[in-house]
């Protein structure tokens, strides 16, 4: 395949993925928007004023970046894990496997689909947040790059989960028992400065902490973690998971007998 043909193959997978999640928007876009709105109402408007300021910002302003990031993470992951596993389950992953489309294009297509859904829902949640607070955007490009890189990272994680999954139960275990705890304990609702020194150190093992804080720096200009460390951790995970995904696709794990 020449470069143009590869671009067409990539674009085809991306369009297919975008059409898939927009066709079922009541399942993919609406629920996270409603859930996050409830967070804004309950934690931001009702409980928030009782808590007071955090890191020099109103509580609702403090949790807004974390809530957006939480939505992006869960949706990017959910899109790829559901779509890739669905393709395996129905057998239509074979449509790509029999074609000359290289594995890295297949990976890029699915990951871009995850990023597209993560960003779509992220933008929708951001728009909803404007009803409760105002968006500051202290460092616009930091905000944009951190959110995109995070979506890439969790799309890759979703693909690895889908490759190994043998049933629909398998695609729910990781989000429920790993992703949700990591996200909730990743500094979405609090600053780790509030924790004891021991738990601060334990929290540093949570990769989500670096993403939430990097994104919070982009919006509010405050972070528990130095910005370069956030970028470093995210990039390291992307390289690690990306490399492992390519290894699995080339080997044919879960998709070739």
């Amino acid at each position: 395949m020449n470069t143009q043909q590869k671009w067409i193959a990539y674009y085809t997978i991306l369009i297919k993925e975008i059409l898939r999640f927009t066709r079922i928007w009541k399942q993919t876009i609406l629920p996270p928007v409603i859930t996050t709105s409830l967070y804004f109402v309950i934690f931001g408007n009702l409980i928030g004023p009782q808590i007071g300021n955090m890191d020099g910002h109103r509580y609702i302003d403090f949790i807004m970046p974390g809530l957006i990031m939480m939505t992006v993470i869960t949706n990017a992951y959910a899109n790829v894990v559901a779509s890739f596993y669905g393709s395996k389950f129905q057998g239509n992953i074979a449509e790509m496997l029999v074609s000359p489309t290289p594995n890295w294009i297949i990976l890029a297509g699915f990951v871009s689909g995850g990023v597209a859904r993560g960003m779509t829902v992220g933008v929708a949640v951001t728009v909803v947040s404007l009803f409760f607070t105002h968006l500051q955007m202290q460092h616009f490009w930091v905000m944009v790059t951190i959110v995109i890189l995070t979506a890439v990272l969790f799309s890759l994680a979703g693909l690895i989960n889908a490759v190994y999954a043998k049933s629909f139960d398998d695609i729910n275990i990781i989000p429920t028992f790993v992703l949700t705890p990591l996200t909730y304990l990743g500094g979405v609702f609090y600053s780790i400065a509030m924790l004891s020194p021991l738990w601060q150190k334990v929290s540093l093992l949570n990769p989500v902490l670096y993403m939430v804080n990097g994104f919070r720096y982009g919006i509010l200009g405050v972070s528990d973690i130095p910005l370069w460390v956030s970028y470093g951790v995210i990039m390291a995970f992307i390289l690690m998971l990306g490399g492992y995904s390519m290894y699995l696709l080339n080997k044919g794990t879960g998709i070739r007998s």
């Binding site: 129905q90 790509m96 074609s99 000359p100």
Partner: peptide
């Protein structure tokens, strides 16, 4: 075995396959 996405329109299934071949 039938191995296409049952929820996709017929024409999209065929056109997408073309896309995978560039």
């Amino acid at each position: 075995e039938f191995n296409f996405n049952m929820f996709e329109p017929v024409v999209e299934i065929v056109v997408n396959q073309g896309g995978y071949y560039g």
